[in-house]
């Protein structure tokens, strides 16, 4: 069975895979990349997306079997170095001159959400880089090359190398993660079992431990 999953799901899905004893291969990448691969005919059994828009693209292309179900939510957080040496406490602080801020590219969900959050906070940031995956943002902060980046709460929870600065609800964006089986799935029963596990209490508690909010 092949699962195409948003890059941010990797820590949680690797744990789930270890528990369900199903022979599964995971393709983790930016949701946008996965959508492009699937619309170009890549074969997969399950698609777990980091936003509803991408899922809708595949629905409209007639590639999804049944109705997608939202299985988790994620919020944004500011990732900074351990100990927060630059004293970053809000989105507004990211506009400080001299600060190296890295964001995800607006073409991937994390980048789109980051832009929405910055717009809500009425903050203009001049990023040093627009990474093609949210994991790129995390690694630039973890390596100390960037002072701050906007990532998912789940990224901060699973990374040992960064610290999170919360973004208040009024400025935050809630990302919905839908999951669905694909129409051309070769392993229908495994796909259904995997989706059922993700939605069941056991799967939900693994997701919660990885920093996601339950569906």
């Amino acid at each position: 069975m092949t699962v195409f999953a948003a890059a941010s799901l990797q820590p949680a899905f690797d744990k789930i895979a270890a528990q369900i004893h199903v022979d599964a291969t995971f393709n983790y990448a930016g949701t946008q990349t996965l959508t492009a691969q699937l619309t170009q005919g890549a074969e997969a059994d399950v698609f777990a997306s980091a936003d509803k828009t991408q899922m809708k693209t595949l629905l409209d292309a007639g590639l999804i079997a049944g109705a997608p179900e939202v299985f988790a939510h994620n919020r944004l957080e500011i990732a900074v170095a351990k100990g927060n040496p630059k004293g970053i406490h809000s989105l507004a602080d990211l506009a400080r001159p001299g600060l190296v801020v890295v964001l995800a590219d607006p073409s991937v969900p994390a980048g789109k959400y980051a832009q929405q959050a910055l717009a809500k906070a009425n903050v203009t940031v001049h990023p040093a880089s627009l990474e093609p995956q949210v994991t790129g943002v995390l690694s630039k902060v973890a390596l100390g090359e960037a002072d701050a980046g906007i990532v998912y709460v789940s990224d901060v929870v699973t990374s040992q190398k960064v610290q999170g600065v919360p973004i208040p609800d009024s400025q935050n964006v809630v990302a919905d993660y839908p999951i669905a089986a694909l129409k051309n799935a070769q392993h229908n029963s495994n796909a259904a079992a995997f989706i059922a596990f993700v939605l069941a209490p056991d799967g939900q508690s693994i997701l919660k431990a990885a920093g996601f909010e339950p569906a």
């Binding site: 890295v102 590219d105 073409s107 880089s129 627009l130 990474e131």
Partner: peptide
């Protein structure tokens, strides 16, 4: 090493990828 920013480090191959 250089990241991806239009006008500063986004060369053609990076632009293709994005």
């Amino acid at each position: 090493f250089a990241g991806n920013l239009p006008g500063r480090t986004q060369t053609v191959p990076l632009a293709v990828y994005i």
